[in-house]
Protein backbone atom coordinates (compact mmCIF):
# COMPACT_ATOMS: atom_id res chain seq x y z
CA UNK A 1 0.00 0.00 0.00
CA UNK A 2 1.29 3.44 -0.85
CA UNK A 3 1.78 5.90 1.99
CA UNK A 4 -0.12 8.67 0.27
CA UNK A 5 -2.74 8.37 -2.43
CA UNK A 6 -4.22 11.39 -4.17
CA UNK A 7 -7.38 10.51 -6.09
CA UNK A 8 -9.13 12.75 -8.60
CA UNK A 9 -8.30 15.74 -6.43
CA UNK A 10 -9.85 19.05 -7.42
CA UNK A 11 -9.86 22.52 -5.92
CA UNK A 12 -11.82 25.39 -7.34
CA UNK A 13 -11.40 29.04 -6.30
CA UNK A 14 -14.44 30.78 -7.72
CA UNK A 15 -13.97 30.50 -11.45
CA UNK A 16 -10.44 29.17 -11.22
CA UNK A 17 -9.78 25.42 -11.17
CA UNK A 18 -6.45 25.57 -9.28
CA UNK A 19 -6.16 21.79 -8.97
CA UNK A 20 -7.94 19.72 -11.59
CA UNK A 21 -8.48 15.98 -11.26
CA UNK A 22 -4.98 15.27 -10.00
CA UNK A 23 -4.07 11.75 -8.93
CA UNK A 24 -0.84 10.04 -7.96
CA UNK A 25 0.57 7.86 -5.23
CA UNK A 26 3.63 8.14 -3.08
CA UNK A 27 5.48 5.05 -1.91
CA UNK A 28 6.84 4.85 1.61
CA UNK A 29 10.45 5.99 1.75
CA UNK A 30 10.38 7.72 -1.62
CA UNK A 31 11.27 11.26 -2.60
CA UNK A 32 8.78 12.66 -5.04
CA UNK A 33 8.88 16.11 -6.59
CA UNK A 34 6.00 18.19 -7.90
CA UNK A 35 7.08 20.65 -10.56
CA UNK A 36 5.26 23.03 -12.84
CA UNK A 37 5.21 26.66 -13.85
CA UNK A 38 4.08 29.46 -11.53
CA UNK A 39 0.43 29.20 -10.64
CA UNK A 40 0.25 25.54 -11.65
CA UNK A 41 -1.41 24.65 -8.35
CA UNK A 42 1.52 23.10 -6.50
CA UNK A 43 1.10 25.02 -3.27
CA UNK A 44 -2.64 24.53 -3.47
CA UNK A 45 -2.01 20.78 -3.70
CA UNK A 46 0.16 20.97 -0.57
CA UNK A 47 -2.44 23.01 1.26
CA UNK A 48 -5.03 20.38 0.40
CA UNK A 49 -2.87 17.56 1.72
CA UNK A 50 -1.99 19.51 4.89
CA UNK A 51 -5.62 20.35 5.62
CA UNK A 52 -5.32 24.11 5.13
CA UNK A 53 -7.81 23.83 2.29
CA UNK A 54 -10.53 21.29 1.79
CA UNK A 55 -10.91 19.81 -1.67
CA UNK A 56 -13.81 20.60 -3.98
CA UNK A 57 -13.65 17.02 -5.22
CA UNK A 58 -11.59 13.88 -4.89
CA UNK A 59 -9.87 12.17 -2.00
CA UNK A 60 -6.58 12.11 -0.13
CA UNK A 61 -5.66 8.87 1.60
CA UNK A 62 -2.81 8.71 4.06
CA UNK A 63 -1.84 5.26 5.31
CA UNK A 64 -5.10 4.11 3.78
CA UNK A 65 -7.23 6.57 5.74
CA UNK A 66 -8.99 9.56 4.22
CA UNK A 67 -7.51 12.80 5.55
CA UNK A 68 -9.25 15.36 3.37
CA UNK A 69 -11.51 17.59 5.43
CA UNK A 70 -9.37 17.22 8.56
CA UNK A 71 -8.01 20.33 10.26
CA UNK A 72 -4.29 21.02 9.77
CA UNK A 73 -3.58 20.15 13.39
CA UNK A 74 -5.31 16.81 12.94
CA UNK A 75 -3.32 16.10 9.80
CA UNK A 76 -0.15 16.95 11.72
CA UNK A 77 -1.13 14.49 14.41
CA UNK A 78 -1.30 11.76 11.78
CA UNK A 79 2.38 12.39 11.08
CA UNK A 80 2.48 14.87 8.22
CA UNK A 81 4.74 17.89 8.65
CA UNK A 82 5.36 20.72 6.25
CA UNK A 83 7.40 23.79 5.51
CA UNK A 84 5.99 26.85 3.78
CA UNK A 85 6.88 28.52 0.51
CA UNK A 86 7.00 31.84 2.36
CA UNK A 87 8.77 30.98 5.57
CA UNK A 88 6.46 31.01 8.55
CA UNK A 89 8.67 31.28 11.57
CA UNK A 90 7.32 31.95 15.06
CA UNK A 91 8.44 35.48 15.83
CA UNK A 92 9.03 36.24 19.46
CA UNK A 93 10.67 32.87 19.97
CA UNK A 94 14.25 31.67 19.74
CA UNK A 95 15.38 29.23 17.07
CA UNK A 96 15.37 26.48 19.66
CA UNK A 97 11.88 27.33 20.89
CA UNK A 98 10.65 27.28 17.31
CA UNK A 99 11.88 23.74 16.95
CA UNK A 100 10.48 22.80 20.37
CA UNK A 101 7.00 23.67 19.13
CA UNK A 102 7.53 20.91 16.59
CA UNK A 103 7.47 18.42 19.46
CA UNK A 104 3.91 19.43 20.28
CA UNK A 105 2.12 16.39 18.95
CA UNK A 106 4.69 14.01 20.42
CA UNK A 107 4.25 15.34 23.95
CA UNK A 108 1.29 15.85 26.21
CA UNK A 109 1.72 18.20 29.17
CA UNK A 110 -1.28 20.50 29.54
CA UNK A 111 -1.95 23.80 31.29
CA UNK A 112 -2.15 22.42 34.82
CA UNK A 113 0.89 20.21 34.55
CA UNK A 114 2.88 23.05 33.07
CA UNK A 115 1.81 25.69 35.59
CA UNK A 116 2.58 23.38 38.50
CA UNK A 117 5.83 22.15 36.91
CA UNK A 118 5.07 18.57 37.79
CA UNK A 119 7.94 16.07 37.65
CA UNK A 120 6.40 14.64 34.48
CA UNK A 121 6.44 18.13 32.97
CA UNK A 122 10.09 18.65 33.87
CA UNK A 123 11.03 15.32 32.34
CA UNK A 124 9.14 16.09 29.19
CA UNK A 125 10.65 19.57 28.93
CA UNK A 126 14.13 18.13 29.19
CA UNK A 127 13.39 15.56 26.49
CA UNK A 128 11.86 18.20 24.20
CA UNK A 129 14.88 20.44 24.61
CA UNK A 130 17.39 17.67 24.02
CA UNK A 131 15.63 16.40 20.91
CA UNK A 132 15.26 19.92 19.52
CA UNK A 133 18.92 20.72 20.12
CA UNK A 134 19.83 17.52 18.32
CA UNK A 135 17.77 18.63 15.35
CA UNK A 136 19.37 22.08 15.27
CA UNK A 137 22.68 20.28 15.32
CA UNK A 138 21.53 18.00 12.49
CA UNK A 139 20.73 21.13 10.50
CA UNK A 140 24.11 22.59 11.38
CA UNK A 141 22.76 25.61 13.24
CA UNK A 142 23.14 24.54 16.86
CA UNK A 143 25.07 27.75 17.54
CA UNK A 144 21.93 29.78 16.78
CA UNK A 145 19.78 27.97 19.35
CA UNK A 146 19.19 30.99 21.59
CA UNK A 147 19.01 33.58 18.80
CA UNK A 148 15.55 35.03 18.17
CA UNK A 149 14.46 33.25 15.01
CA UNK A 150 13.52 36.51 13.26
CA UNK A 151 17.12 37.71 13.57
CA UNK A 152 18.48 34.77 11.59
CA UNK A 153 19.35 35.07 7.92
CA UNK A 154 17.07 33.58 5.32
CA UNK A 155 18.94 30.30 4.95
CA UNK A 156 19.01 29.70 8.68
CA UNK A 157 15.32 30.51 9.01
CA UNK A 158 14.66 27.84 6.41
CA UNK A 159 16.82 25.47 8.42
CA UNK A 160 14.85 26.27 11.58
CA UNK A 161 11.60 25.66 9.75
CA UNK A 162 12.86 22.34 8.51
CA UNK A 163 14.13 21.33 11.94
CA UNK A 164 10.74 22.28 13.37
CA UNK A 165 9.01 20.04 10.84
CA UNK A 166 11.39 17.19 11.62
CA UNK A 167 10.74 17.60 15.34
CA UNK A 168 7.25 16.35 14.66
CA UNK A 169 8.83 13.01 13.65
CA UNK A 170 6.82 13.01 10.46
CA UNK A 171 6.10 9.96 8.37
CA UNK A 172 5.56 12.31 5.45
CA UNK A 173 7.35 15.60 4.98
CA UNK A 174 6.02 18.25 2.60
CA UNK A 175 8.61 20.78 1.45
CA UNK A 176 7.35 23.76 -0.54
CA UNK A 177 10.26 25.20 -2.54
CA UNK A 178 12.93 24.49 0.06
CA UNK A 179 15.70 25.81 -2.21
CA UNK A 180 14.05 29.13 -2.98
CA UNK A 181 16.44 31.92 -2.12
CA UNK A 182 19.42 29.63 -1.52
CA UNK A 183 22.66 29.93 -3.49
CA UNK A 184 24.06 26.97 -5.42
CA UNK A 185 26.23 25.78 -2.54
CA UNK A 186 23.38 25.95 -0.10
CA UNK A 187 21.15 24.19 -2.61
CA UNK A 188 23.67 21.37 -3.00
CA UNK A 189 23.87 21.11 0.78
CA UNK A 190 20.08 21.01 0.96
CA UNK A 191 20.06 18.15 -1.56
CA UNK A 192 22.36 16.10 0.66
CA UNK A 193 20.28 17.00 3.69
CA UNK A 194 17.06 15.84 2.05
CA UNK A 195 18.80 12.56 1.22
CA UNK A 196 19.78 12.15 4.86
CA UNK A 197 16.25 12.88 5.99
CA UNK A 198 14.96 10.19 3.68
CA UNK A 199 17.54 7.81 5.10
CA UNK A 200 15.96 8.42 8.50
CA UNK A 201 12.85 6.79 7.06
CA UNK A 202 10.90 9.92 6.21
CA UNK A 203 8.92 9.98 2.97
CA UNK A 204 9.26 13.29 1.16
CA UNK A 205 7.05 15.20 -1.23
CA UNK A 206 8.56 18.44 -2.44
CA UNK A 207 7.69 21.31 -4.71
CA UNK A 208 10.75 22.81 -6.33
CA UNK A 209 11.70 25.05 -9.21
CA UNK A 210 15.41 24.24 -9.10
CA UNK A 211 15.61 21.55 -11.79
CA UNK A 212 19.10 20.36 -10.99
CA UNK A 213 18.05 19.68 -7.42
CA UNK A 214 14.82 18.00 -8.48
CA UNK A 215 16.52 15.78 -11.06
CA UNK A 216 19.24 14.95 -8.58
CA UNK A 217 17.24 13.79 -5.58
CA UNK A 218 13.79 12.69 -6.76
CA UNK A 219 12.77 9.13 -7.34
CA UNK A 220 9.77 10.33 -9.29
CA UNK A 221 8.41 13.59 -10.59
CA UNK A 222 4.86 14.80 -11.07
CA UNK A 223 4.38 17.69 -13.49
CA UNK A 224 1.45 20.06 -13.05
CA UNK A 225 0.31 22.68 -15.49
CA UNK A 226 -2.80 24.81 -15.02
CA UNK A 227 -3.88 22.52 -12.22
CA UNK A 228 -3.67 19.33 -14.29
CA UNK A 229 -1.14 16.54 -14.07
CA UNK A 230 0.55 16.38 -17.46
CA UNK A 231 3.25 13.84 -16.66
CA UNK A 232 4.52 11.55 -13.94
CA UNK A 233 7.69 9.53 -14.23
CA UNK A 234 11.30 9.08 -13.20
CA UNK A 235 13.59 12.11 -13.72
CA UNK A 236 15.33 10.71 -16.80
CA UNK A 237 12.03 10.35 -18.63
CA UNK A 238 10.59 13.66 -17.41
CA UNK A 239 13.63 15.51 -18.70
CA UNK A 240 12.84 14.31 -22.23
CA UNK A 241 9.06 14.41 -21.95
CA UNK A 242 7.80 16.52 -24.89
CA UNK A 243 4.97 18.21 -23.00
CA UNK A 244 7.24 19.05 -20.07
CA UNK A 245 9.85 20.49 -22.38
CA UNK A 246 7.10 22.51 -24.02
CA UNK A 247 5.77 23.86 -20.73
CA UNK A 248 9.20 24.74 -19.46
CA UNK A 249 10.88 25.95 -22.59
CA UNK A 250 7.92 27.21 -24.55
CA UNK A 251 7.23 26.17 -28.12
Amino acid sequence: MSLLAIEHLGKRFGGLQAVDDVGFTLARGAIKAVIGPNGAGKTTLFNLIAGMLSPSSGAILFEGQPIHGLQPCQVARRGIARTFQNIKIFHGMSALENVMVGRHVRTGVGFFGAMLRTPACRREERAIRERSLELLDFMGIADCADTPAVNLDFGRQRAVELARALALEPTLLLLDEPAAGLNIYETAELGRLIGRIRDLGVTILLVEHDMSLVMDISDEIVVLSFGRKIAEDVPEVIQKHPEVVKVYLGD
Partner: peptide, 22 residues
Protein backbone atom coordinates in the same frame (compact mmCIF):
# COMPACT_ATOMS: atom_id res chain seq x y z
CA UNK B 1 6.44 24.89 28.59
CA UNK B 2 4.68 22.92 25.89
CA UNK B 3 1.30 24.67 26.16
CA UNK B 4 2.97 28.07 26.63
CA UNK B 5 5.07 27.64 23.53
CA UNK B 6 1.95 26.58 21.67
CA UNK B 7 0.30 29.86 22.70
CA UNK B 8 3.29 31.91 21.63
CA UNK B 9 3.41 29.99 18.37
CA UNK B 10 -0.20 30.95 17.70
CA UNK B 11 0.85 34.56 18.16
CA UNK B 12 3.88 34.10 15.92
CA UNK B 13 2.09 32.36 13.05
CA UNK B 14 -1.32 30.76 13.47
CA UNK B 15 -0.99 28.76 10.23
CA UNK B 16 2.37 27.33 11.17
CA UNK B 17 1.17 26.54 14.70
CA UNK B 18 -1.78 24.69 13.22
CA UNK B 19 0.51 22.82 10.83
CA UNK B 20 2.64 21.77 13.79
CA UNK B 21 -0.38 20.16 15.41
CA UNK B 22 -1.46 22.94 17.77
Amino acid sequence: SRPGRALRAIHGSPEAADAMGV
